[in-house]
Structures are given as structure tokens and as C-alpha cells.
Design a protein around this nucleic acid. Structure first.
Length: 506
RNA sequence: GCGCCUUUAGCUCAGUCGGUAGAGCAGCGGACUUUUAAUCCGUUGGUCCCGGGUUCGAGUCCCGGAGGGCGCACCA
């Protein structure tokens, strides 16, 4: 089956007639020398938001005729009323009402509006006044047609509700659903602010390769591809930036980070998309406590950005306080506390003890001790982690890349930040002992041989890098998509991704 | 992978017991010089997701398939 044949979507009869009507309007505009697709540029000098703010004090009936403005955007509503009309123009900042009079534009120019459709892009010029009903409005003196919408727009009141169509034709979703546009612009801001905050602390943003011979640094199945220039050599898309960023720490860059796309060939659901954006950051000479403070400051900053300097966030239908300091709780003590003291450290750290707890909770048997701990944590502690909480001092058996706590070798210097039951970040003091790292890679080789395809092949060069000496270092990973979900109160990752992955349409 | 829900006009949605396919919006024609889901009059528009089956007759019932959503399982 050729991808090119039948690629253009076929119009239904109703839709075809709607498009035909718009094409007739296009032809009519062209016949009067107003070809929308001949337009090149328009000297915009304001935005809807600016005008509404600037003329807020204007009284009903007042006209600011001495100040002329040029603004462009999409027509989202046209209300004709004989020899006048009102229209709504939307730009990236919001809505502005337009007022057009036949006696000012002249018959021919006013007639052009018969050939304008909802969705067309126009540039208008005029002055501000406040209408009888109190709406700040631009009184149009002249206008240009800058582009034509040949396709009909969705319902002006209900917008586009069809979830599938919203994801597949995000451009339509963005045109008609302003809350979607707000979320996506907020996402952009959150990522920009994250970068600014990190840069302000002396970090270097680095770009490590996406194409790797061995995708490591996490447990996940990679996407595979081939490089033609290397005789079709097989390569993998990265599943983490961890190993390369730590190579940079070895190299002496000391404070590095990357905000980049990660690819994992795994399941798709409300919290997983095959490609997603992760922040990883490494700081030489920091330990996990330094990272915790940094993390807290970053999240507080971002909450302030999205709320306009408040420290309370609406999540679902509740308010969550992000006042500093965030709660801190130890992994083992937290589980003990929320089980009425029944699930003690001794039982949890013992494989048989953990298995017995699983049974008490009515959970199925786990294949490994670590898996059992994860399940117990999810059932006992995670439901209580609503307000931002640092869960600290993880058991070493579920933390293969972290340094042990000095004086308590069963635990490691690691924390995860939870909020609204969701993991926001994962950070620890990095393992920098090359012999230990080599031993852990060798152990992974054995696990992979037993059939676990998510275990990556070892990256032996990374061990060699550690043999040159990596300073004591703290590292953190933050899934930016999930962070944006939290900050924008969305429950599906698809609603914070512009183009979530969808199956090819038959 | 399993389960539940969903797919009807460009959009948002009805469609009863199996009996000629509906509404609102949009569109088209007309009226209207401060409207804002404008209003009023008139009007066009259908691959009922696809393929089988049952039936005199299927949007509706049965089987199979596809897309999408949610939950569970798996997974950082």
C-alpha cells in the first residue's frame, strides 16, 4: 500500500459544499483584487491583550479616535447587522471585538465582508471605543485579508470535543479551544523558566546525542534505527541522558544539564508517551541534600510562575500548598507510620518479611524483593503523598546507581519528590566507583541473559570514564511532561503534548 | 495483554420496541446602523466507522475487524 495514494482525506457531501462556498468567496475576493494568498506582511503594532489593558478606563460610548492601531488575527465570529457588523478577532493573546460600518468603508469594501468567513485571517486598522454593552471594541477604518480558511471550523460554542480529532488535528484544536492553547503556551513558559532558573545557578546546557550505539542509563526497550552512511549500522534512540552527562562531569564541566527528548519503546497511557521530555542535571561536589534544596527552590519558582506568585496550586479539585519547606519523610519510616507500625524496617528489608507483608495486603507475589518494596510503597505510602513531599533514604536494593548512606549501608543517599500521588523527581548522590559500576553492569548482563529485554547492554566506555575519576556528584531527573501536568492541572500526558503519538489512520 | 465505554451531517449531540434519518450550530438566500452563543423568516446538507450475518425490513439485534478514550496489568 502506497502512502501517497488516497492520502488526502475525502470530503463528505456537506463538507464539500461548505468548502465550495468558501472557494467561491475566495474567487470573489480575487476578482476584486483582494487575493488573500497574495498578502505578504502586515505591520502589527499591538495585541488584543495590550489594547484591552490600555483602554480599560475608557467609558461606555467614549471613542479614542486619535490613536490608531494595527492588529491581526483570525476571525472567530462575524455578526452582521444590516449596514454594520461586529466580529471577533483572536490573536495569540486573546479576543478583540471589531466594529465595521458600511458608511465608512464604502459599498465595495464593506461588501468584501460578505466574502469573509469564520476562520479567515485579517489585519485591521482603527481606533478603540467602548460599545453600548460595555465591550472594548476596535472601530475598523481599513482592513486587509491576509489568509483564507477553506475548511469550515468546528462549532463556535462547543468547540472541538472529539478527542481523537483534537490530537490528530491539533491545529484545529488550538484554533477553537483557547484553554488548550493556554496550556501549550504555559508549557513553553515552564520549560523556559526552568532553563532560566538553572542557568542562573551556573549550569551549562549540553546537547548529548540522541542516536547511540548502546542506549543506557535506564531500564527500557529502545527504538532501533539504521545509519545509511555507516553501511546501515544499527543504532538506538536514547532512553536517558545520564551516562553522557556524567561523562561531562568527568571531563570537568562540573555543572551540566540537558532538557531533551527521550524515547522509550514501551506502553502508552495517560502518563506515558513513547517520546517525552526529561530534564537531567548533574552538579559536581553536591550531595543529595544540596540537590533537594535546589529542587525545592526550582519547583517553588515554577509554581510562582504559573500562579502569579502564589504558593498554592489547584490540582484536581483541591488546593495544594507549595509553601517551603516541603515535607520530608523517610521511605522506611513513612511505610511504618502509615501501617500503624506493623511494617517495620526489619520486615521490609528482609525478603521473606516483605513477601509476608504483600500477603497481608492481599497483593500478588512479587518476583523480587525490590519489586515487593515498590508494591508496598505504592499501596501504603503513595496514596498519602498529596502535598509536595521528599521521600528520602531509599533501600539500596531498589537504587542501583546511588551511593550508600555512610553509617547505614542498607540505605542510599537518594530521594524522590512526590506530589498528588505522582513522582515529580528522582535524585541521588551518584555512584562514582568504577569497580562497583563494572560489577553492576556485569550483574545486568546476567539479568538480560535471563530474558529481561529492558536491561540495557553495558556501556563499558562509561566505566572507563569513571576510571579517570568522577568527582562526588549529585544528579536529578525530572519528567517535564508530568511536571507540566501537575502545574497545569491536566490528568493526561497527551493534553500537555502538542502532538501525542497516535496510530496511523487506515 | 485483559476489561469497560465510544464512533450518526462540517461541529455538538438525540434516535424509544427492529418499521421512510432528527435537532442546534455552521452554511446558503433574505431583513436588520452597538452586536457579542445576536435576533427574525426561508432553505441545502447523511459511506449511521468497516465487513459479514439474522430478518419481509437493521443506525438499532448477533459475529468479526478498525480507530479513539478510560480502568487494570506491565513499566520509571
Amino acid at each position: 500500500m502506497s502512502a501517497d495514494v488516497g492520502a488526502e482525506h475525502e470530503l463528505g457531501k456537506t463538507e464539500a459544499s461548505l468548502v465550495a462556498a468558501r472557494r467561491e468567496n475566495l474567487a470573489a475576493l480575487r476578482s476584486r483584487g483582494r487575493d488573500p494568498f497574495e498578502a505578504r506582511r502586515f505591520a502589527v503594532d499591538t495585541t488584543a491583550e495590550d489594547l484591552l489593558r490600555q483602554y480599560e478606563v475608557l467609558d461606555v460610548g467614549a471613542h479614542a479616535e486619535s490613536e490608531n492601531w494595527n492588529i491581526a488575527g483570525r476571525l472567530m465570529s462575524i455578526r452582521t447587522a444590516g449596514k454594520t457588523l461586529f466580529a471577533d478577532l483572536h490573536d495569540r493573546t486573546g479576543r478583540l471585538q471589531l466594529y465595521v460600518r458600511k458608511d465608512e468603508l464604502g459599498d465595495e469594501r464593506f461588501a468584501d465582508w460578505n466574502d469573509l468567513d469564520r476562520g479567515d485571517v485579517v489585519g485591521v486598522s482603527g481606533f478603540m471605543f467602548r460599545s453600548k454593552k460595555g465591550d472594548l471594541t476596535l472601530h475598523v477604518r481599513s482592513f486587509e485579508v491576509l489568509s483564507k480558511a477553506l475548511m469550515p471550523l468546528p462549532d463556535k460554542w462547543h468547540g472541538l470535543q472529539d478527542v481523537e480529532k483534537r490530537y490528530r488535528q491539533r491545529y484545529v484544536d488550538l484554533i477553537v479551544n483557547s484553554d488548550v492553547r493556554d496550556t501549550m503556551m504555559m508549557r513553553s513558559r515552564i520549560i523556559a523558566e526552568t532553563r532560566r532558573f538553572i542557568d542562573g545557578n551556573g549550569f551549562y546546557e549540553c546537547e548529548t546525542p540522541t542516536l547511540l550505539h548502546v542506549a543506557g542509563g535506564a531500564a527500557a526497550r529502545p527504538f532501533l534505527t539504521n545509519v545509511n552512511a555507516l553501511s546501515g549500522e544499527e543504532m538506538q534512540l536514547r532512553i536517558a541522558t545520564e551516562l553522557n552527562l556524567k561523562r561531562l562531569i568527568v571531563g570537568g564541566m562540573e555543572r551540566v544539564y540537558e532538557i531533551g527528548r527521550i524515547f522509550r519503546n514501551e506502553g502508552i497511557d495517560t502518563t506515558h508517551n513513547p517520546e517525552f521530555t526529561m530534564l537531567e542535571l548533574y552538579a559536581a561536589y553536591w550531595d543529595v541534600h544540596d540537590m533537594m534544596e535546589f529542587n525545592e527552590a526550582l519547583i517553588s519558582h515554577l509554581v510562582g510562575v504559573v500562579t502569579g506568585n502564589d504558593d498554592k496550586l489547584t490540582v484536581g479539585d483541591r488546593e495544594i500548598s507549595f509553601a517551603r519547606p516541603f515535607k520530608r519523610i523517610s521511605y522506611l519510616e513513612g511505610i511504618a507510620q502509615h501501617s500503624g507500625g506493623r511494617f517495620t524496617r526489619e520486615r521490609l528489608l528482609d525478603p521473606d518479611g516483605a513477601a509476608a507483608i504483600l500477603e497481608e495486603l492481599g497483593l500478588p507475589k512479587s518476583p523480587t524483593h525490590g519489586h515487593a518494596l515498590d508494591k508496598i510503597f505504592e499501596r501504603v505510602l503513595e496514596p498519602h503523598l498529596i502535598e509536595p513531599t521528599f521521600v528520602m533514604d531509599y533501600p539500596v536494593i531498589i537504587s542501583p546507581l546511588s551511593k550508600r548512606k555512610s553509617g547505614d549501608p542498607d540505605l542510599v543517599d537518594r530521594y524522590e519528590l512526590f506530589c498528588n500521588h505522582m513522582e515529580i523527581s528522582n535524585a541521588f548522590t551518584e555512584l562514582n566507583d568504577p569497580d562497583d559500576q563494572r560489577a553492576r553492569f556485569e550483574a545486568q548482563v546476567r539479568e538480560r541473559a535471563q530474558g529481561d529485554e529492558e536491561i540495557p547492554h553495558p556501556d563499558w566506555d562509561f566505566v572507563r570514564a569513571l576510571e579517570y575519576g568522577m568527582p562526588p556528584t549529585a544528579g536529578i531527573g525530572i519528567g517535564m511532561d508530568r511536571l507540566v501536568m501537575l502545574l497545569t492541572n491536566n490528568t493526561s500526558i497527551r493534553d500537555v503534548l502538542l502532538f501525542p503519538l497516535q496510530r496511523q489512520h487506515g
